[in-house]
């Protein structure tokens, strides 16, 4: 019943190992959300700080990852987060050019993503970058599945309008019940 908590040095080691293992994936998501490496890392750091404070009750790394990710997305859309994200207006985004069309397209799509309202942006990143199911993405954002679906569709509609050639149909993430584990992300680390 009275499980002995791990000694402090062990907990710190566990946390350090957790950060080493997961910070790559978290930073990549944060970069997509904020459009800036520094701001993205700041966002991850804020989320990890809260994770460390809750570490004792998170018990398992799986819980810690879900907690960190959830906190990070909430911080991103939170009205309390005063730091502005590095928004790039879609109008100012580079058009696909001749010299490096792939890089230009990536920048343009990222700029268009950043022009979406924060909750739509988060929904698109969770579904199309993190590959979460609708259920898992909704849990991460703390909203009903129907809301998550509406946000995703509104975000995609805007992206489609700007990039009609962008293929979305066969990139649809898995359905609500097709994944056992709500979080993946290793492939993005």
């Amino acid at each position: 019943m009275n499980r002995q908590p791990a000694p402090p040095s062990t907990r710190l080691s566990e946390f350090e190992e957790f950060v080493r293992a997961r910070s790559g994936a978290l930073t990549a998501s944060a970069f997509l959300l904020t459009g800036d490496r520094g701001l993205g890392e700041d966002l991850v750091q804020e989320a990890l700080a809260r994770t460390w404070r809750a570490w004792r009750r998170l018990h398992r790394v799986e819980n810690a990852e879900a907690y960190t990710r959830r906190t990070m997305y909430h911080l991103h859309v939170s009205r309390w987060r005063r730091t502005k994200v590095a928004e790039v207006p879609a109008e100012a985004a580079p058009e696909p050019g001749e010299e490096d069309p792939d890089a230009a397209l990536r920048l343009a799509v990222h700029a268009a993503l950043l022009s979406l309202p924060a909750r739509q942006r988060a929904a698109v990143v969770l579904r199309y970058f993190e590959d979460l199911t609708e259920t898992a993405a909704a849990e991460t954002l703390g909203c009903p599945v129907s809301t998550l679906r509406a946000r995703t569709q509104r975000g995609l509609k805007r992206l489609r309008r700007r990039f009609p050639e962008l293929r979305l149909s066969d990139a649809e993430p898995s359905g609500p019940d097709s994944r056992v584990h709500p979080l993946r992300g290793e492939s993005h680390a």
């Binding site: 998501s29 997509l32 799509v109 293929r167 993005h188």
Partner: peptide, 10 residues
């Protein structure tokens, strides 16, 4: 595809 673009950008 959007997924490929986001992964490459990330």
């Amino acid at each position: 595809s959007l997924r490929d673009l986001l992964r490459q950008r990330a």
